[in-house]
Simulated assay, not measured.
Amino acid sequence: MSKFKRSLAGLAGAAALLLALSACTVNSVDNSSDKTDKGSSSSSDSDEVKVPSIAKDGGLEVGTGLNEIDVWVDYQCSHCRDFEESNGDYLTTLVETDNATVRIHPLYFLDRGAVDGSSFRAGNALACVADQSPDVMLEYSAKLFAADKWSDQIFVELADDLDVSGVDSCIEDLTFGPWLTESMKDAMEGDSLPATTEIERVQSTPTVVVNGAVYKGDPKSNSAFVSFFEANQKN
């Protein structure tokens, strides 16, 4: 067993405990629409941790704005999908107008730490696309939430829709899997947690932090998040 797989096995128990505290628990997921293609079972046995080119503090960073926004998501999490549907365009606008730097932290609570789970593979696909084409990272993240089903082929097709090619092997081989594992471990244990002193570790998804302040409002509300951002933005 590789070091990568052993580390994932160790995370499984911790992830199960964390799920009980998460805004998105296993019981909240609609298991009738499984997004995983069970035929896609490729895994990485490499001990090398390859880091995406735009990785910072365990997230994928886009933008150069003064305001810093960190968003921890699990792509199976319905509350995370709600936040994306309500506020994804707003985050994109903040980045495009140089008002914010946004970091997306892909986690996989709902996989129970599994190496081949849905959220794990989705997070790796996001990292593959972001590594090659940072400018479309937020749009690709939105596409992951909007997709009716998932498979490695669908991840590639979603990238093709954004004119991103050449990510097939990165997606299929879980190239950034070890990085995802380290990032999730850091988030769960609070090791060098960026952006805030309000929380010691990430215990739910979505967890959204604006300039150190943790958003506790309704993930479905754009007006609530806009008000929160404006109240905490830097001048």
Rank of each mutant, 00 (worst) to 15 (best):
A159D: 00
D160F: 08
D160N: 15
D161E: 15
D161A: 15
L162P: 10
L162W: 08
L162K: 11
D163V: 03
D163N: 14
V164M: 09
V164Q: 07
V164E: 02
S165G: 06
S165L: 07
G166A: 04
G166L: 05
V167A: 00
V167N: 00
S169L: 10
S169M: 07
C170R: 03
I171N: 08
I171P: 04
E172D: 08
L174V: 03
T175C: 06
T175K: 13
F176Y: 12
F176S: 00
F176C: 01
F176L: 01
G177K: 04
P178I: 01
W179F: 10
W179L: 01
W179N: 02
W179D: 01
L180E: 05
L180I: 04
L180H: 10
L180S: 10
L180Q: 12
T181C: 08
T181R: 15
T181E: 08
T181H: 11
T181V: 12
E182H: 10
E182N: 11
E182I: 11
M184S: 13
K185M: 12
D186M: 12
D186C: 11
D186Q: 14
D186V: 06
D186E: 13
D186T: 11
A187I: 08
A187Y: 08
E189H: 10
G190F: 02
G190E: 00
G190V: 00
D191I: 15
S192D: 13
L193G: 05
L193Q: 06
L193M: 06
P194K: 10
P194V: 08
A195H: 09
A195T: 07
A195R: 12
T196Y: 12
T197A: 13
E198F: 05
E198Q: 12
I199L: 05
E200K: 12
R201G: 09
R201D: 08
V202N: 04
V202P: 07
Q203S: 14
S204F: 03
S204H: 08
P206Y: 03
T207S: 10
V208I: 15
V209L: 13
V210C: 13
N211F: 12
G212C: 15
